[in-house]
Simulated scan of single mutants.
Amino acid sequence: MFPKNCWYVACTPEEFAENPLGRMICGERMAFYRDAEGKVAAVEDYCPHRGAPLSLGYVEDGHLVCGYHGLKMGRDGKTRSMPKQRVGGFPCVKSYPVEERYGFIWVWPGDPTKANSDDIPHLEWAVSDEWAYGGGLYHINCDYRLMIDNLMDLTHETYVHTSSIGQKEIDEATVKTRVVDGEVQTSRFMDNVIAPPFWQANLRTKGLPDDQPVDRWQICRFNPPSHVMIDVGVALAGNGGIDAPEDKRANSIVVDFITPETETSHWYFWGMARNFKPEDAALTDAIREGQGAIFAEDLEMLERQQRNLIEFPHYKLLKLDIDAGGVQARRIIDRVLAEEQEENSNRIASVSA
């Protein structure tokens, strides 16, 4: 159900700053830690001795030590030692290509020979001093594709986020969807509207009036396997909208990394990058808190939606024009999956021949 020959955000460095981290990614249990050189390592979360989770252990001399009987594991998945035991013949566990970049830990769950760190998407906002970023993590019990659907169709904001970013003009605006170089783009433009509370606060932060009409935009961009970046903002009406000068607008990038856990659960790394007042840590915290509350409103809806899909399997999801972004994203995911399955079949056939 999910592609594996690709890079996913697995965690953040803070999550295993003191102890190893166990996390399931794409149906595979992994343990994350740092080796003797301080580099991130990821191995299968399974001790070959008695099957204990290695993530319940600790790190010693750059090796992951099983907390059950003291077996030491290397970053390559090979057992290094075990107190008073000969372990040279122990089978290796799986190790995973892993990279630390942009404040995230990226992992490749598939064929390690195909992993190329150059394929990790470039995030300009993560390396520029002109931008600030704040975000968080939610564990959500639903198919990761439902979250992609949610992010590629922001019509729901009118109904789910009524007190923050929702307004009736969203579902009145024309939705345009297109695929450009493998990226799905869904856009909405709303002219001469009153900004909702979240954007009123951002206008005030920039010293702009919050009670005047604005031109608002939302441009959702999906890239496989499951990354969605949303260019959002408002500008004082009549100043060019998305092309308005910096002193007439407030805009940000909503950052969404959706990482499958199982077929009905995922890890949702969310955040917002902004290019105004990047030095203001208090503002970053305030935006993070507000955005976290907004995304929390999605959580119950998505989990209940997943429950319904399981309990009513005889119904099929309907497709409207507002669903085009999610539909196109799913087509790309299906195509990537089909390519992987064909490669696996050809490999098995060549080995058997």
Results as ranks from 00 to 15, higher is better:
Trp106Leu: 03
Pro109Thr: 07
Tyr58Ala: 14
Gly134His: 08
Arg288Gly: 00
Asp211Ile: 05
Asp149Thr: 04
Asp298Tyr: 03
Arg34Ser: 05
Ala10Trp: 01
Asp119Ser: 11
Arg347Asp: 13
Met301Pro: 01
Gln305Phe: 08
Arg249Met: 08
Ile348Met: 10
Thr158Ile: 05
Arg288Ile: 07
Asn150Phe: 02
Ile294Phe: 01
Phe198Ile: 02
Ser81Arg: 02
Ala349Glu: 12
Asn5Cys: 04
Ser163Cys: 06
Met152Leu: 09
Phe222Leu: 02
Met190Phe: 01
Glu343Leu: 10
Gly27Val: 06
Tyr315Arg: 12
Ala235Gly: 03
Tyr33Ala: 05
Asn19Gly: 07
Ala173Trp: 00
Val193Leu: 06
Gly89Cys: 12
Leu21Ile: 06
Tyr268His: 09
Trp7Leu: 04
Glu303Ala: 03
Gly70Glu: 06
His122Glu: 15
His156Trp: 03
Glu124Met: 09
Val228Ser: 00
Val214Trp: 01
Val184Asp: 04
Asp334Tyr: 07
Val43Cys: 05
Ser345Gln: 14
Val65Trp: 01
Lys319Thr: 14
Ile258Gly: 00
Val214Cys: 08
Ala115Phe: 06
Ser164His: 02
Gly51Asn: 02
Leu54Glu: 08
Gly238Val: 03
Glu157Ala: 13
Ile310Met: 10
Glu157Arg: 01
Leu64Ile: 04
Pro109Val: 03
Val180Thr: 11
Pro245Cys: 04
His139Asp: 14
Lys78Glu: 14
Pro97Met: 05
Asp76Arg: 06
Thr264Ala: 13
Pro91Gly: 07
Arg331Gln: 11
Leu317Gln: 14
Ala41Thr: 08
Pro112Arg: 10
Tyr46Arg: 12
Asp298Leu: 00
Leu318Lys: 10
Leu318Thr: 14
Asp118Pro: 00
Ala281Arg: 13
Arg188Glu: 05
Met190Asn: 06
Gln291Leu: 15
Cys220Gln: 15
Ala52Ile: 05
Gln341Leu: 13
Ala273Ile: 06
Val59Ser: 07
Asp243Met: 10
Gly135Phe: 00
Glu28His: 09
Ala296Asn: 07
Arg221Asn: 13
Asn239His: 15
Ile140Arg: 00
Ile148Met: 07
Phe32Pro: 01
